[in-house]
Amino acid sequence: MLALTYSPQTPLHALSAPIKLMALSGITTALFIIPTGWASMVLGGAALALYAAMGSAFLRAGLRTLNGLWPFVVVLGLWHGWQGDWDGGILILARLITAVAFANLVTMTTPLQDMIACLVRLLHPFRRLGLNPNAVSLAIAMMIRFIPVFMARAEQLKMAHRARSHRSGRWAIIFPLALGMLDDADTVAEALRARGGITPKD
């Protein structure tokens, strides 16, 4: 299961994650606070330029990530078209696409580990409320480790269902999948305790 980071590396990969995240916050805020459509057009153009600057393959990959917005393009098109407010529709769309484009740019140029490191750092203030950063790191690692295990198990259950039914088994497999997860959790917790457990936070 691969992360959404783009490879090979581009110059933007070299920028540190916190800087990119802060820039992203600034840009997104600007997009939604500056009321004129110019912000969207200018920033949208900037996003396009940045993608293009990283190479045409990168640009194409970036455009693909915008596919999920199609339903909303249609909805907005119908809505504003029916009201005769094309300008309004285009501006909202431009703002939306620009925001998503910049956000995806950060995702494509930042390795998963860096993002996780940022996340853990953001949780720092919660230490005072009892959150144990060791538990958080461990939880992240375990989640990543088990996602492919459960995905493979889901595939196997799908096949087991297909072996006895010509119908779709997509709902039937949720139960055994969940049960397997609960059983695994008990076993893994035991194994963890046997290896010393989670280090207390202090």
Partner: peptide, 23 residues
């Protein structure tokens, strides 16, 4: 032809936990 296939051939998997679907 799944409808006829499931009455022709069945499979016992390695791990019964991957096969049992019901409680």
């Amino acid at each position: 032809d799944r409808k006829r296939a499931i009455q022709k051939i069945g499979i016992l998997f390695q791990n019964p936990d991957h096969q049992i679907i019901y409680p």
